[in-house]
Design a binder for these strands. Structure first.
Lengths: 352, 352
DNA sequence: GGAATTTGTGCAACCGTTTGCACAATCAAG
DNA sequence: CTTGATTGTGCAAACGGTTGCACAAATTCC
């Protein structure tokens, strides 16, 4: 016989019995939304009894009855990735304010996402925050088919069928490119992220657009995309670029880890940063201000991103007919020491 | 009328009706643990029907009946802190393997921990992983009083009333001190963490013990504890120590962030690391291999820690009478470039 | 080939709340 | 002092599964 929970756990019924009222009255008295329907005196008696007995409502039972779990699921590709921590933190702050708790599912970017989502749905989560989608993700189809409120964070989906909160990737790239060109760079390469992610895709296009806007020929701006947002992948891409285009004086990376991989490649080739080659990252993740040299990067406020996504999700839950919205946060360029005038420009300037 | 979940959500009863059997039979057929009690043919028919109708069990309902939520709560002081991400990651990996999902509560180290814990209990979590306890924490009393399986991670409690998984702080300090003394340092200061945390307390004592074991006089090993595990606090403590003991040639920090704060203080005073002063950190958090200079530190495998804690929790849940255990993980010294021979020793060596 | 056992399915209670409805008591209005 | 509205409480049926028990049918055993 299961279900007979540990003795000592007080139920609503017991409180009712001790207080000498009907269970429904206890329920009403203890629920702030309905306690006005019970006389003051009884409310007090019940509250006292509940307190004395150490009564704690069983939210699982309440969930079953009301159909509301007050649980939100968050799918992240890698909790250990420092980018997601602030997103999580911001989201859970916003959700906690409304009485929601977050169930975190760390899903190793393989094909298990859908399983996880299903498992969360089985647990009656009321909404989903998705931080791990690709540009064309079956997860999105799933949420739509299930009419499950969901919001994308950090990455968006090609068809914009769900609300999302993202950084303005085009602007980020423009900031990076403008900064480098203002310094005098004229041979700028991009290390892009995986094209399957919106960030990889958009930052790549943003880079090209920024280059074109400044009138630089595409040949002067070669691109390579890394297979993953990882240091090793960045290093490999940087090597490929330097091999094919030795004239490069600056790198724009789609992500800080890629930028750090770029550092590795430069070091391996005996090139100094920023003296020989400048590097710009993206995200401004913790500690990149301390690496050598401190990384110039495009800052994204991931905490705010998480907060806003949670907020959007709450809105969507309240009003399922609300239109899907894309909230675009403006990134900010943080100039540190990994960018400087290119040697040629410096020389030219010295000569002029 | 709530509780009438969205139309289109298939229930057990509907599956039963379509398959022409009793709901209880469907329940048994779909549960791997009981499906052997149903004939092969019927199991298949039911499975097909369920599949066809897109049936998804409502785990909330199941929880209510069985008293098992398959939910584990994790209390962390700060999700955004990069130390906790791998703990979370390791724990959720282990728990997911047993069908448990994790509910993360990010609790800002104030007094709300108990509230959060209560809220998790109300949601019928089956166990708690506590990564945010102090050496004498009311949360521990609460878990014991509630007979709630709980395991401490990263930090332990003075009275060892709950199982915990921690790093061997004494050993960590010994590794750090031995390394520095082997290099020739004889004036080593410690920047400790908050004494209210077991890590702060134990690392401080470990440091003193290691110093004593090598026969160094306590006067040659001054200590300061930082108010928090934060860069600024480390910087302040380093300044205090350098002010009072200008002869210091090496710092042992209780945590990497404190060590990085120490870098800040050295820089502010025009001292070079490691040329003038060596620094050893603790944790080996992500990216400290890239800061300038790459940090020599005591590595703790936080991911493993989280995994083991989850494992211990599962054991404790299976057998509530099991004795509490303390699992001590051995840390490892990772030597990078922030430690070197002290100038005096180098000079002496050069002269000899 | 009849008794003893096993197998497969149905029945109904139960987990702990919530809530629409009913109804008595109290109050306000005329 | 009736009539009508309001207030406070109880009743019982949910919510969607799970499971002990009962019992018919199929199987095994001697």
């Amino acid at each position: 016989m299961v279900g007979k929970s540990e003795p000592g756990v007080v139920t609503l019924r017991e409180v009712a019995e001790v207080a000498g009222v009907h269970p429904s009255t206890v329920s009403r008295a203890l629920n702030p939304a309905t306690s006005h329907r019970v006389s003051k005196a009884v409310v007090r008696r019940i509250s006292e009894t509940a307190e004395r007995l150490g009564y704690r409502a069983n939210l699982v039972a309440a969930s079953l009855r009301t159909g509301r779990s007050h649980l939100i699921g968050i799918l992240v590709p890698d909790i250990a990735n420092t980018v997601f921590s602030p997103i999580l933190s911001g989201a859970s702050e916003r959700l906690a304010a409304e009485g929601y708790l977050t169930v975190v599912a760390d899903v190793p970017d393989g094909g298990r996402q859908l399983d996880l989502a299903r498992s969360l749905v089985a647990r009656q989560v009321e909404g989903l925050l998705l931080a791990a989608v690709t540009r064309d993700d079956p997860l999105v189809d799933y949420c739509i088919a299930q009419r499950l409120p969901a919001v994308l964070v950090n990455r968006s989906e090609a068809r914009r069928r769900l609300s999302s909160v993202v950084s303005d990737d085009a602007l980020g790239m423009q900031l990076a490119v403008d900064h480098l060109m203002d310094l005098g760079h004229r041979a700028i390469a991009q290390i892009g992220g995986p094209e399957s992610t919106s960030t990889g895709y958009n930052r790549h296009r943003g880079f090209l657009a920024a280059i074109a806007a400044r009138g630089l020929a595409p040949e002067a701006a070669p691109c390579e995309s890394a297979e993953a947002y990882a240091r090793e992948a960045g290093q490999a891409a940087a090597h490929r670029l330097l091999e094919a285009h030795p004239e490069i004086t600056a790198f724009v990376a789609a992500n800080d880890l890629l930028a750090l991989g770029c550092y590795d490649a430069l070091k391996a080739r005996g090139l100094r940063c920023p003296a020989d080659v400048s590097v710009v990252g993206h995200n401004d993740m913790p500690l990149v201000d301390l690496v050598a040299p401190p990384l110039t990067t495009v800052r994204i406020s991931h905490r705010e991103m998480g907060w806003e996504a949670a907020d959007l999700l709450l809105q969507g839950m309240r009003d399922p007919s609300a239109s899907t919205r894309t909230l675009v946060l403006a990134p900010q360029l943080v100039v540190r020491d990994s960018t400087a005038r290119p040697r040629t420009a410096a020389r030219r300037r010295g000569a002029g």
